[in-house]
């Protein structure tokens, strides 16, 4: 039954992807790619990846759509020229697809427990998490403890991307900062959008509460800093869309956001340095407390908080950078 359902979802995913590429109006393409992300999240859930599904739903369907719409409002939503060399590209793509499919024929069958990828480090991670870290969510344990270096690198990539966006379009010289979202346009818009505003205002605290739950429950269930950052940023973006960008900036001014971007990354690195100062290796949490297991858990909570703060700061700064450039 699950097999049929997952094949159905995968086929739907393919159809949506082709529709995204085929759509002539960019607005339609962006909306379809939001649907694509939700379908992808469902597929991830069926593939036992609850954490990834949560992230994809919050980031792909929520924040990515808002950012693309922001970019569209700054440029244009019409695709002007038809593709040149369309047949040539189609031919190349068809040949490459066949080559990739040929390559998959040698792969072990889907879900095979004896496949090489399943027998190497995964069992070790599962066992060691049970003994040395003692938290239920292995994904969080691997993310923040075993592969702490990798995650630190990822946080700095997010950090760098955020700084890059601020460099490119963060300064709003020449154009006046204006509100985006429903309340712009003719004044009659406000009256017409009364219901969404009221309901949205009601939902914002719930979304934020859920974000905090995901942040601090990440050791026990699906969740963690990356997801929580995306969800909290989404709640504040919703607030900005409802009440105008200025009100959102009063809640969290730009200076605070910049502080969050660097503060989260700094907190992460500081935990690593603290480990060094207390006689361990960089990002070795076992030495943080007398009990190594407790030390691991404290370290994971701290660095997840750092990740959450940075991701929230970066996503919100990017949103504000796009919103402030609006010239409606």
């Amino acid at each position: 039954m699950t097999v049929v359902f997952s094949m159905f979802l995968l086929t739907l995913l393919l159809i949506t992807a082709i529709a995204v590429v085929h759509a002539g109006n960019l607005f339609v393409a962006v909306m379809l790619s939001g649907i694509f992300s939700l379908l992808l999240a469902l597929n991830f859930f069926l593939l036992d990846a609850a954490d990834v599904a949560l992230t994809e739903a919050a980031v792909g369907a929520g924040i990515s759509t808002v950012l693309f719409l922001g970019a569209l409002s700054l440029t244009t939503d019409r695709e002007k020229s038809p593709s040149p060399h369309r047949l040539l590209s189609l031919a190349i793509v068809a040949v490459t697809t066949l080559a990739v499919i040929m390559g998959t024929l040698d792969k072990p069958s889907f879900g095979d427990p004896e496949a090489p990828v399943q027998v190497h480090v995964a069992p070790w991670y599962l066992e060691t998490t049970r003994e040395a870290i003692q938290i239920p969510n292995v994904v969080t344990a691997v993310l923040s403890s075993f592969r702490g270096y990798d995650t630190l690198g990822e946080v700095f990539v997010v950090f760098t991307a955020g700084i890059g966006v601020l460099f490119l379009i963060g300064r709003h010289s020449g154009t006046k900062p204006q509100d985006i979202g429903p309340p712009h346009g003719e004044p009659s818009g406000l009256r017409h959008y009364l219901i969404p505003r009221l309901i949205g205002r009601m939902l914002v605290p719930f979304i934020m509460l859920f974000g905090l739950y995901v942040q601090f429950h990440g050791e026990y269930g699906p969740g963690g800093g990356f997801q929580a950052g995306a969800i909290i940023a989404a709640s504040i973006i919703l607030y900005a869309l409802l009440e105008g960008e200025k009100r959102a900036l009063q809640v969290l001014p730009r200076s605070v956001l910049v502080g969050m971007i660097s503060g989260g990354a700094l907190l992460y690195s500081a935990v690593g340095v603290a480990g060094m100062l207390m006689g361990g290796n960089f990002l070795d949490y076992s030495v943080l407390l007398d009990d190594p297991v407790k030390g691991q858990q404290i370290g994971i909570i701290l660095i997840e908080a750092g990740v959450g703060i940075t991701v929230t700061g970066v996503l919100l700064s990017i949103f504000h950078a796009f919103a402030a450039r609006g010239r409606f």
Binding site: G185, H192, P196, I199, M202, L203
Partner: peptide, 16 residues
């Protein structure tokens, strides 16, 4: 809560 609200937003946007 959200479904009908989204429909309302869509319909009023179309009307506007």
């Amino acid at each position: 809560l959200t479904g009908p609200t989204a429909s309302n937003a869509l319909a009023s946007a179309a009307l506007l």
